[in-house]
Measured scan of single mutants.
Amino acid sequence: KLETFPLDVLVNTAAEDLPRGVDPSRKENHLSDEDFKAVFGMTRSAFANLPLWKQQNLKKEKGLF
């Protein structure tokens, strides 16, 4: 399991300012399950079932792209 970080560490943070080991294209993977659901309004599995373009739009909207 990946290390999780608080939302404010990941949202609207440039790649070079992210904690070590965080993939800038997969910031959402480093949210706790609770934060993930609070941000996206759905579970990880529901998010994973969305088309890629919709996932990317949601990530942009939430500052996690």
Rank of each mutant, 00 (worst) to 15 (best):
N29V: 11
P51V: 02
P6W: 03
T4P: 07
E34Y: 09
R44D: 01
L31W: 02
K59P: 00
D23S: 06
K37V: 14
A48Q: 14
L50V: 01
H30E: 04
R20A: 15
A48F: 12
F40L: 08
D23Q: 05
G41H: 10
A38W: 10
A48W: 09
E34W: 08
A15S: 11
M42T: 02
V22D: 03
E16Q: 12
K60V: 13
P19Y: 02
R26W: 08
P6G: 06
D23M: 05
S25Q: 15
L58A: 04
S25H: 14
F47K: 00
G21R: 05
N29H: 13
F40D: 00
E28Y: 02
M42H: 01
L52T: 08
S25R: 13
T13A: 13
V39T: 10
L10Y: 01
F47L: 01
D17K: 11
A38S: 12
R44S: 04
N57Y: 13
G21E: 09
K54L: 14
K27S: 05
P51E: 07
E16S: 11
P24Y: 03
V22T: 03
K62T: 07
N29D: 15
G21H: 08
L64F: 11
G63V: 01
S25N: 14
S25T: 15
R44E: 02
R44H: 06
V11Q: 12
K60F: 11
F40I: 03
D8G: 09
Q56E: 14
T4M: 08
K62E: 03
T13E: 06
E3W: 04
T13M: 15
T43D: 14
K62F: 08
E3M: 10
L58F: 05
M42L: 06
L10T: 02
G63S: 04
E28W: 01
R44I: 04
A46G: 07
P19T: 03
L64Y: 07
D23H: 06
E34M: 09
H30V: 02
K59E: 02
F36G: 00
A38G: 08
P24G: 07
F65A: 15
F40Y: 01
S32R: 07
G63M: 05
G63R: 04
F36A: 00
N49M: 12
K59C: 06
S45T: 15
D17M: 12
K1Y: 11
L58Q: 02
L7Y: 15
A38K: 11
Q55V: 01
F47C: 00
D35V: 09
L18F: 07
A14K: 15
A46C: 11
G63I: 01
L10H: 02
L18G: 05
F5R: 03
N12M: 08
V9F: 15
Q56M: 13
T13P: 07
L2Q: 13
A46Q: 14
K54R: 10
E28I: 06
V39F: 06
N49L: 14
F47Q: 00
A15E: 12
A38D: 11
Q56V: 14
D33W: 04
L18Q: 03
S45C: 14
D33S: 05
D23R: 04
A48R: 11
P51C: 05
V39I: 09
L52C: 15
N12Y: 04
G41C: 09
A46W: 05
L58H: 03
L7V: 09
T13F: 08
P51G: 04
R44Y: 05
L52F: 13
K37M: 15
A14N: 13
S32L: 03
D23T: 05
